[in-house]
Structures are given as C-alpha cells and as structure tokens.
Simulated assay, not measured.
Amino acid sequence: MLSGAVRLTGWRRTGGGWVVEGVLPEDYPLKGQCEDNKTKPCQRGEQLFADGKHLTRVMSLAELKPGTFYGDYRTNTVYVGDDPTGHVIEMSRTQTAIDKSAENVTVTGLTVERFASRPQAGALQVGPGWKVTANEVRWNHAVGIMVIEGDRAQLSRNTVTDNGQLGIGQYKSAGVRITANLVTRNNTDGFWIADWESGGIKSTRSSGEVSGNDIVANRGIGMWSDIAEYDRRITGNRIRDNAADGIRYEISYAGVIDQNVVERNGFGTGRGSGGSLWDGGGINVNTSTDVQVRGNLIKDNRNALSIQSRTRGDGPRGTYVLRNVLVEGNLVVMTDASSTLGVVENKRSPAQPGAITFRRNSYQVTGSQDRFAYGGKSLTWPEWQQKGFDQDSVTS
C-alpha cells in the first residue's frame, strides 16, 4: 500500500472542537472550480480521515461539527469536530505516489490512497508506454490516475474510486487504452459538477480507446472528451447514475460512441445547470465534427441525447463546428416526463443543412409525445420526422 497520509497526534480540547498545530504545509497557489464557488473548499489538497473515514472540510471554525474538519492555513492549525481520543486521525500530505519520470513502466497490484494531489494532477502520474493494471486508487484529493504526455499507455482492470475530483484523466496523450476499469463515486471533495473536470474520466487533446469500463455514480460527467480530441473511440462501457452527462464529446473531431449502456445520468447537477438540452443528456455531442453515435442503449437519462451547435473558435484541425454527426441504430428510452432529445443551436452558429443525420433508431417514449427538439421548438414525432430526421426509425 502507498499512502500519502500522516498521522496527527497532540490534540487538545478547545471551544467546540479539538485542535492540533503546526501540521499544515506552507500556503500555496490555489486553483480549481468548486461547486461552492464562494468559499471554494475543493482547492485545498489536505484531507482528514478518522479511522479511515473521510471527513468533510468546512471553511470556517463556526461551521465545525461532528464529521467535519477545518484547516486554518494562516495560523497553521487543524480542528476536528469529534473527540480524537482513541482514534487514528490522518491527514493527506504527500502530493504524488508515483511520478512519470521514465517510460515503459508497469504498475500493478498496488493500493494508492490518501494523497494530497492538486487539482488536475494525479496521485498516480502515468507516462509513455506505461501499463497500469489491477490497482486500487482511492481517496486521493484530485485525480486518481492522470496520464500526461503518456502516448501508448494502457490502464486496465483498476478500481478507481472516491477520489476528490476525477477518477482518470488524460492530457496530450495519443493511442491510450483505458479498458475494463471500475470508475465510481469520484468527486468527493466538492469540485464543480456540471462543467469542470469532475466525475469519472476526462480526456483532453488526446486519442485512443475507452472501452469495457463501468463508470458509475460519479459526481460529474461519466466520460468527457473535451478540446481537440481526435480518433477517439468510446465503446462497450456501462455508464450509469452519474450526476451530469453520461458521455460528453465536446469541441473535438473524429469520434465513435458505440455499444454503450448509458442509463440514469444527469440528475445530480447543481450550480450553473438546469434541465434543458443546453445542459446536456445521456449523450451530449457539442460542436464537434465527424462523430458517430451508434448502437447504444440510452435509457432514462435526464435528457436522452443533446446535439449542440455553439460558437467555440478554432482548433488544430480547423474551426470547431457541428458537422457530419451520425446518430444511428440506438435504442432510446425516455420514461421521465421532462426528458427530451434533439438539436439546440445558438444564433451565431446554426447547424448547417445535412450536418446531423438520425436514422434507424428505435424510441420508447412514455407520456407526452412532444419530446423532440429542433429550431428552438418542442416537436412531436411526426413533426420531428417532417424536419428530415429519423425517416426510417420507429417509436412506441
């Protein structure tokens, strides 16, 4: 086991809690977007554990209560709301368990826990050609496993759970394979759920395969490809009960999203989010080119499928634009009365004719039938087909 925590001793009673002094690091620059964007508790890396149980950070001494802790970096003191006598109180202190200082490294069979990783950084940092297999990576402050400039890395059969920000991250890494992992219950430390790298897996400016994973009950997006992704395949995953989108493919190119089970996602967003198609769906394709969404089961998400056209500027393979998107052969089940599916556009970036094709899909819709959207309007099934979509599809 690799642990980034140190045991805290020397507690004394004070006011409404117990305090220990001189255990915090020197103050450091803060970053990261938190769900609470006023007090910003997610930006601090040091977390406390009482007999292995994760305590909740509060941002003032007045908020201290059982099950919580407060770190005062100005006076270098830590307070807890429960009597620590007879208990093991640990604080995550070390930032990184293993760094990417070499190529072609194998990491297997380890438990990596309680590291004070900084936002967007991993407790386990993965480099080129690494094989990371059958590890348990848990209760680290920011990202559990982070692949940075790690071309050809392989992550398989890992359990990545209860990390503070994100389960797995990938940045500027080509040909990476992320397969057969369990990624669950990540974003324990209050990062922004709707739109800042929290939740299951996020990849940026990279390529490769994400397949056969269980991505379940993360407080954020299940699988997010964002910014200049290319040649990305998201296939055969089970993506369930994540707080935001199940899958989001955003301002990227050449992606295939196929044979996934995408269920019950999108019901847990908070700040800056609502229930419209602008806020996403089980699958969300946002201002991307050459994307295929095919053969998926998309069932009982807050919204089923959101195709978005926005003004997003230029990327390395041309302007980010919604073009050549194919939605084919999916089974879409919409039981929730407010769930919908369709295309939304901003005024400066309307989808061009022929940019989106829906064909050979099957829909099961419960309740009102105006559950499709295009051109700023809610549409019934016949009206949706009159717009040229799903001419050879069926609904029931």
Rank of each mutant, 00 (worst) to 15 (best):
E229G: 14
R238L: 13
V216R: 09
D290K: 13
F115Y: 09
D83C: 02
S156Q: 15
E197G: 07
T56S: 10
A194T: 12
D214S: 12
V176R: 07
I168N: 08
Y249T: 04
P84K: 04
G295T: 03
A244P: 00
N284V: 13
W384G: 03
R138L: 12
I193F: 04
T106Y: 12
L277S: 06
T106P: 08
V58S: 09
V143P: 03
A228S: 13
D189I: 09
R323M: 03
D51L: 03
V88C: 14
V58D: 00
K65F: 14
N301T: 02
A97S: 06
W192K: 11
L305C: 06
C42R: 00
P84Y: 06
F49Y: 08
S362G: 08
E383Y: 02
N135H: 06
P353L: 02
F49W: 01
L30T: 14
I168T: 05
I89G: 06
T56V: 06
R302M: 06
L277W: 03
N163A: 02
M1N: 14
M59N: 12
G280F: 00
S273C: 07
G255M: 04
H87M: 13
L305P: 03
Y79R: 07
I193E: 02
L166S: 06
S338C: 12
V58P: 00
I227A: 12
S276G: 09
R232S: 15
A50P: 06
R317Q: 11
A217G: 14
V19A: 04
N324M: 09
P316G: 00
Y171T: 11
I215N: 06
R248M: 03
Q364Y: 13
Y374C: 07
A142Y: 00
T68V: 05
R205P: 09
Q292N: 12
N301R: 01
G150N: 01
I307N: 03
A5S: 02
L124H: 09
R271W: 04
G200M: 08
R219Q: 13
T94H: 13
D314S: 14
Q364V: 14
G67F: 01
I307P: 06
R271K: 13
D214L: 08
T77M: 14
K65V: 15
V365A: 01
R13W: 09
V394I: 05
R157A: 15
L2N: 11
R114Y: 05
Y230M: 15
S101A: 15
R138E: 12
N187G: 10
S309A: 04
G15S: 09
T335H: 13
L2Y: 10
G367F: 01
D226C: 08
T204W: 10
W384T: 04
S117D: 04
C42I: 09
E250R: 12
A243T: 07
Q120E: 14
A142I: 00
R360G: 10
R44K: 12
A134I: 07
V80P: 02
S92F: 07
G342E: 01
A217C: 13
A134R: 10
A142P: 00
I298V: 10
R248S: 08
I234Q: 11
